[in-house]
Design a protein around this nucleic acid. Structure first.
Lengths: 229, 229
DNA sequence: CGACCATTTGATATGGATCAAGCGATGTGG
DNA sequence: CCACATCGCTTGATCCATATCAAATGGTCG
């Protein structure tokens, strides 16, 4: 549960099908009709998508690549709030200005939809209004789960992080991490050294295997789950 | 910004007045018409309002007293997610089950509104739909700010916490804390001893004065702000 | 092949946890 | 009204997980 995230609409069961009459362009979380209101844009590695306190003009959906949102604290530390991978939606701000900055972690292709248009649409299309709510709610859930990680030890945080990534990126019992150790460290509130050591612990305890630093093979979910608990 | 929270509707300026035609029973965050759909209930000190994984039946607004939401981790630690004081709304869950438990921190009076009724209303009243979204968004913002605290030192977390409380509870340069040290510790991811020591540091540095353990007088906001930064 | 940068590994330092005592308010019974 | 128990908080002493500092390794790209 802790590492469960949910990007799909449909928390309210009977309402989930509200967009199914429109053939979806993408597999989930936001429907074709809305995507077609937007356009595609590409971002090279480590480029800014938007900055903190910039006006929030767009809602973004990841087509390919990956994105981090973060904030630089006055003490110089960077806290990463979330990672977004293909299918995820981000940038749906609640005020007119972004609370966080966003950067492409790797060469990324995004769909951008004008926030103003969406809000206007939501004011007479109830399904759109519900979608905006649902997306915000999913983000809230994800952020709450993130908070819980901070009550745990370094090894537990890393295990929890891996399970979160596995849920979103697993293919053939392996995850190709889109982010560097520094990003993982800044997401978990640890140093890169500690992240590295924790990964080594997990490998030594036969929970995972690390053929290369970006590839994590899952050997023993139960062990990871026990740790992340 | 870090400790800024916002319970009032109206992120979108021109939309904020959508409920003003109904005379509000309470001062802010959710309008009289909706409150009248609900009823009042009282909870003694330290009693459960709802438990994790219970069906989410109601939305709650604090009339008097105070509430904490939290989760008990498998390692036995309790992570407090948020505190709610008079005027605050909580319990607006995204799925059909609560993600967190809620308890009254002190003798509390709450207004309860049936979640199902609200969602039904939202499906044809656009202003209600926007309100639900706005409330969820405010909660997201609050949770994001909470996450940032974990990137800081103990003294900084405590200073940040005090500023957050000041924003919501300040009268005459003094805050009457509704919660015990243990609650503060579990909110900040520290021990009660460390919270106590940090408060002493802040008092020694003349930023605050602590006439009794529940009363905090603010002497030097700049110093607190500098710390919490 | 060689330079560069990310990652891992090693040695040491430290902030906050833990363990343990003291203190101060509140309440109870004599 | 005062001993005395209780409970929450503060203060003190020590320990430990993780940070920090430093070096070695390895993968990538010219």
């Amino acid at each position: 549960m802790l590492v469960k995230t949910e990007t799909q609409p449909g928390y309210f069961g009977h309402q989930a099908a509200s967009h199914q009459d429109v053939p979806p362009v993408c597999d989930f979380a936001f429907p074709g009709a809305i995507e077609r209101m937007g356009f595609t844009n590409s971002y090279p590695l480590d480029t800014e998508i938007y900055g903190e306190e910039e006006p929030a003009q767009y809602l973004y959906k990841v087509v390919s690549g990956a994105v981090r949102t973060y904030k630089i604290l006055e003490n110089g530390r960077r806290q990463i709030a979330a990672f977004y991978v293909p299918g995820d939606v981000f940038g749906l701000e609640t005020r007119d200005e972004h609370a966080l900055s966003a950067e492409a972690i790797s060469q990324s292709k995004l769909i951008l939809v004008k926030r103003r248009d969406l809000i206007a649409l939501a004011s007479h299309d109830n399904a759109v209004a519900r979608l905006l709510w649902t997306l915000t709610a999913a983000e809230l859930r994800r952020t709450q789960d993130h908070t819980l990680l901070f009550a745990m030890s370094a090894d537990q945080r890393v295990a929890g992080f891996l399970l979160e990534m596995a849920e979103r990126l697993l293919t053939d019992d392996e995850v190709k991490l889109p982010m560097a150790r520094r990003d993982i460290a800044d997401y978990l509130g640890l140093t890169i050294e500690t992240v590295s050591r924790s990964l080594t612990h997990l490998e030594n305890s036969a929970a995972i295997k690390i053929p290369t630093s970006r590839r994590i093979q899952f050997r023993d979910y139960a062990a990871l789950g026990r740790l992340s608990a």
